[in-house]
């Protein structure tokens, strides 16, 4: 990235804001977001991430974006994963090992069903959403 001018910074912010808003009704793609802080990684998040990548490719799904983020703080339920599928509520899954990751691809992403026993609550409302 080259040095930005003020104008470029503002434009980048606007364009990326839309892209990142998983819950916006405009969002047409599928997102899998894996928490990769120390706590997540210590509990196997790297394997989880790999399992998502493998299973998505096994199922021939190419329209899914898989991203890493820092930890959300739900250390008791790591690894944690956020899954956003258009026309379904965005949810947080906890204790997502490789098997659960594959299940999420098959049952949630393909089958449009939530997975039992693994849904957790986002710890707090997002304060950045809705700022001007």
């Amino acid at each position: 990235m080259a040095k930005m001018t003020l104008d470029e910074l503002r434009k980048l912010r606007e364009s990326k804001k839309k892209e990142l808003d998983l819950r916006s009704p405009d969002n047409k793609s599928i997102h899998v977001v894996v928490g990769m802080g120390t706590s997540g990684i210590a509990n196997g998040a790297k394997k989880t991430l790999q399992a998502f990548v493998d299973e998505l490719s096994d199922q021939g799904l190419t329209n899914v974006s898989v991203r890493q983020v820092g930890g959300m703080g739900l250390d008791f339920a790591e690894p944690t994963v956020e899954v956003a599928v258009p026309e379904m509520p965005t949810v947080i899954y906890g204790n997502v090992d490789e098997e659960v990751a594959r299940k999420i691809v098959r049952k949630h992403i393909l089958g449009k069903q939530l997975i039992n026993e693994h849904i957790y609550d986002r710890p707090a409302a997002d304060i950045v959403e809705g700022t001007e």
Binding site: Q68, V69, G73, T80, V128
Partner: peptide
């Protein structure tokens, strides 16, 4: 922690 778990 506003961005932790939201952004790469």
């Amino acid at each position: 922690l506003r961005n932790c778990g939201f952004i790469d």
